[in-house]
Design a protein around this nucleic acid. Sequence first.
DNA 1: GTTTGGCCTTGACTTAGGTCAAGATAAATT
DNA 2: AATTTATCTTGACCTAAGTCAAGGCCAAAC
Lengths: 227, 227
Amino acid sequence: MEKILHIISQTPLFRNLPEDDLKRIKHIAKDKFYNKGQTVFSEGDDGNGFFVVAAGKVKIYKVSLEGKEQILHIYGPGNPFGEVPVFSGEQFPANAQTLLKSHLLFFPRTAFTELIANNPSLCLNMLAVLSMRLRQFTLQVENLSLKEVPGRLASYLLYLAQEQASDVTVSLPISKGQLASLLGTIPETLSRILSKMGNSGLIEVSGGQIMLLDPVGLEELAETGKL
Amino acid sequence: MEKILHIISQTPLFRNLPEDDLKRIKHIAKDKFYNKGQTVFSEGDDGNGFFVVAAGKVKIYKVSLEGKEQILHIYGPGNPFGEVPVFSGEQFPANAQTLLKSHLLFFPRTAFTELIANNPSLCLNMLAVLSMRLRQFTLQVENLSLKEVPGRLASYLLYLAQEQASDVTVSLPISKGQLASLLGTIPETLSRILSKMGNSGLIEVSGGQIMLLDPVGLEELAETGKL
DNA sequence: GTTTGGCCTTGACTTAGGTCAAGATAAATT
DNA sequence: AATTTATCTTGACCTAAGTCAAGGCCAAAC
């Protein structure tokens, strides 16, 4: 019980709210538990609430008719997802599936809407969360349309280095197959590019551990896209 | 003056608000006028407010180092844009430029934030607007990553037909060059695909007027992507 | 230890779509 | 109307990245 309150108080969405609000928020949250690889919701499902990751990892993705998958986001502890239908109505625009055994908090739409309508701070927090997400989509479109795969990979590695605050070695938080899908490509292509970047002395790969040997070169690659 | 109030009352963002609120909103709006092709803001500029199109047309876009352009959105009368930095702080994530002589309303950040913090309806409207935008980005990523250019074009034509409520002939609201940039390709490729689709009997192009001869075939193309 | 199955890598091949260059239309300006 | 300028189209070529198929690697299960 205390743990949930702690999780809630940690997420950006609920940051800087008075104790009272946090209790009210906790009150409407429902625990949900999933094993690895389970579907949380599918594109087209009615969205009568959204989720916050308490523990584990979730991917949000689209699939083409031919079966190619594009990952839109990967969310870990503290991140909310599935809020779009809460505010715009209609169905979920994408699929959600756990990548690990996960503990999620579910917030039912009506209860949450009431809460937010009476809580300007919460509302502004939510606006900030959605804005950050728009900013991130902007980057994703830029990457997909204006950069080639090596450039996207370089960007991702630099992002990881910053995220993990370790500018020597980064460890991939997802499988290489999933990374390919996140970067908008396929495992074969990713594999080839990783080994090319290894040969050029930019990185050194050993399994999921990647040493960034030449951060400056990576920056350049991320911008120009020329390998 | 009355005209501005009318414009404001028409946009989804300000819909269903009491007269009083609309007046307050109008009060903080500043008129701005632009000629065709002028830059409204650039990526990286500080965003100390957002805009609503009163008249004209604006494109939001990114450019690569090599000069390739990707249009993210095209907004006409009633549409707000540039709100991301209002709520998440920092700079504009993309560029904005007028496609026509335009009249914009500018809402300064601080004044608007105060307004929204005291107005739950307005806040929920804004959440709905941002959610719709996330939904639309979801589609754009899907199109760029999972569909080929013919499929994207077919989707766009069907969208236009619905938008213009005319399921026989649609007229392109932008130049073919700009359409190419919106679809994530280049004019040459778009041109070739338009003529291919003409040869296959799907459409008939004459300038900016396009007859949709086979809507069912277009639907299929939009989904499977096989031309 | 051996086997099973999932993931990753490598090679040979194909293709969508980008580049470069030249014309052709159409639109704008004088 | 005539000339300039932008926009669109077409052709020949090239390249990034996808497909198909085979083999390697490692971890889990027996």
